[in-house]
Computed example of a mutant assay.
Amino acid sequence: METLNAIQLLEIPVVADASGNLGIIQSDFLPFNFKRIYYLFDVPSTAFRGGHAHIDQQEVLIALSGSFEVTLHDGTEKKRYLLNKPNIGLLIPKGIWRELENFSSGSVCLVLASDDFSEEDYIRDFDEFLNFKK
């Protein structure tokens, strides 16, 4: 089972130019091939997102704009990350509980996921998650 030690902050390659920066994510950049891309936006600052773990899916979260906090739990320990740079991705391996909160105004969270959506891959109850990790 994965632990917090498997979580990584990935530095996304950027081509800097006087006319603006270009962030590049190619298939060989991630430790998985992404099958789904989605994004969260217009999230109220008091809203709470996530609140689940995936059985098999891996994800990378990127704050394209603004900031938000991600709390990750491996069944034993938890760690909090502030995402606020569009050139940093947070790699979340399978079997890690995640909670997203404290979204700044105008924030956008981009998610690169290793699989298509499948409700069967979600663990949405924290007690079930703890049992899964045992």
Rank of each mutant, 00 (worst) to 15 (best):
M1E: 08
M1F: 08
T3A: 05
T3R: 03
T3G: 10
L4R: 05
L4F: 07
N5A: 13
I7K: 08
Q8L: 07
Q8N: 10
L9I: 14
L9C: 13
L10S: 05
E11G: 01
P13H: 04
V14P: 08
V14E: 10
A16D: 10
A16F: 07
A16N: 11
A16E: 13
D17R: 12
A18E: 15
A18C: 11
N21D: 09
L22Y: 10
G23E: 04
I24M: 15
I25R: 02
F29Y: 02
F29K: 02
L30F: 14
P31A: 09
P31L: 08
F34W: 06
K35G: 08
R36L: 14
I37A: 14
I37P: 13
I37Y: 10
Y38Q: 11
Y38M: 13
Y38D: 12
Y38F: 15
Y38T: 11
Y39L: 15
Y39H: 15
L40G: 07
D42K: 15
D42L: 14
P44Q: 13
T46V: 14
F48G: 09
R49V: 10
R49T: 09
R49K: 11
A53D: 02
A53G: 01
I55A: 10
I55P: 06
D56C: 05
Q57A: 15
Q57E: 12
Q58S: 10
E59M: 12
E59Q: 15
V60I: 08
V60C: 06
V60W: 04
I62C: 01
L64Y: 02
S65W: 09
S67K: 11
S67H: 12
F68N: 00
V70M: 06
V70Q: 03
V70L: 07
V70G: 04
T71E: 15
H73F: 12
G75E: 06
G75W: 01
T76Q: 03
T76K: 04
K78I: 01
K79H: 05
R80P: 02
R80N: 09
L83W: 00
L83F: 01
N84P: 09
K85C: 05
P86H: 00
N87E: 09
I88Q: 00
I88S: 00
I88R: 00
G89K: 00
L90V: 04
L90W: 05
L90M: 07
L91P: 00
L91I: 04
I92N: 01
P93F: 02
E101L: 05
E101I: 03
F103H: 04
S104C: 09
S105P: 07
G106S: 06
S107W: 12
S107G: 13
S107D: 14
V108S: 05
C109W: 01
L110C: 13
L110T: 13
V111N: 11
L112I: 04
L112D: 05
S114R: 09
D115N: 11
D116R: 12
D116K: 14
D116Q: 15
F117H: 15
S118E: 06
E119A: 15
E119K: 15
E119W: 12
Y122Q: 04
Y122D: 04
I123M: 06
I123K: 01
R124W: 07
R124N: 11
D125N: 14
D125Y: 11
F126E: 08
E128C: 10
E128K: 11
F129C: 07
F129V: 04
N131S: 10
N131I: 08
K133Y: 14
K133F: 14
K134N: 03
